[in-house]
């Protein structure tokens, strides 16, 4: 049963570039969304807070796979573009989904920075923007690290869904291979899992490291 392993690897690896590019793009997009939405939820303008809350609760309340299918049909409508590539739909769906989760991480980390820090920076007459950029965010970032690590692994796992909307990632090639070699099913999917695990290893390492940094924490 092992003789087909090199063949399988050679075949599915064709999707490796797409899998990693979707992961990187979706992760970058969700980090951006996390900060935008997380900080918007702390805005003192009610309507901005309200709109972001709807976004966050909607994407946290429904599941990624539903959002992916939904956006596949809704994005052309919402953006007035008729041909949005499946790659982009995948990136947008995953980015919006995990951006919503991560925005909560950003929000709670910012809130948990000691209030005295804000007071000290007011006393030094910093503007709101300076307070956030120079004092609060640098300390909040440290607290966010482990959760960003954890969610990055979740994002990676989420990228496997894009084959469902026709993106040619490693799972897509795995499915194609299996459909003409039915008896190899277990080996095909096991190899895919191993590939995903190898990509995940540095993330696992980074999130453990982030945990240590966060534990040192921000003392007064």
């Amino acid at each position: 049963m092992f003789e087909s392993v090199p063949d399988i690897i050679r075949y599915v690896i064709q999707g490796f570039g797409v899998t990693t590019s979707i992961f990187l793009a979706a992760a970058a997009f969700s980090y951006v969304m996390a900060f935008v939405a997380g900080l918007c939820r702390l805005s003192n303008i009610t309507i901005i807070r309200g709109i972001t809350a709807v976004y966050v609760e909607f994407f946290r309340g429904t599941s990624l796979i539903v959002q992916l299918f939904w956006l596949q049909y809704a994005i052309p409508m919402l953006l007035g573009i008729n041909i949005a590539s499946a790659w982009w739909i995948g990136v947008i769906a995953i980015g919006l989904n995990y951006g919503a989760y991560l925005s909560e991480v950003v929000r709670t980390s910012v809130i948990s920075v000691d209030k005295g820090q804000t007071e000290a920076s007011i006393a030094l007459n910093m503007t709101r923007f300076q307070r956030m950029r120079l004092v609060i965010l640098p300390q909040a970032l440290r607290l966010m690290l482990p959760e960003f690590g954890n969610y990055s692994i979740q994002i990676l796992k989420g990228t496997s869904l894009v084959s469902l909307i026709g993106v040619t990632d490693i799972l897509y090639f795995g499915d194609v291979y299996r459909s003409s070699n039915l008896s190899e099913g277990a080996m095909v999917y096991f190899i895919l899992l191993i590939i995903y695990f190898i990509i995940a290893l540095p993330l696992i390492y980074l999130s453990k490291k982030g945990e240590k940094i966060a534990k040192k924490g921000a003392a007064t």
């Binding site: 005295g116 000290a120 006393a123 640098p138 300390q139 440290r142």
Partner: peptide
Amino acid sequence: IGMVFQHFNLFPHKTILNNCVMPLTSV
């Protein structure tokens, strides 16, 4: 107006020198 706090409220992510320098350069 300047203020000194009961609980110091120093910026833990900055060195002592930069605790003083940062407000001068930014504000």
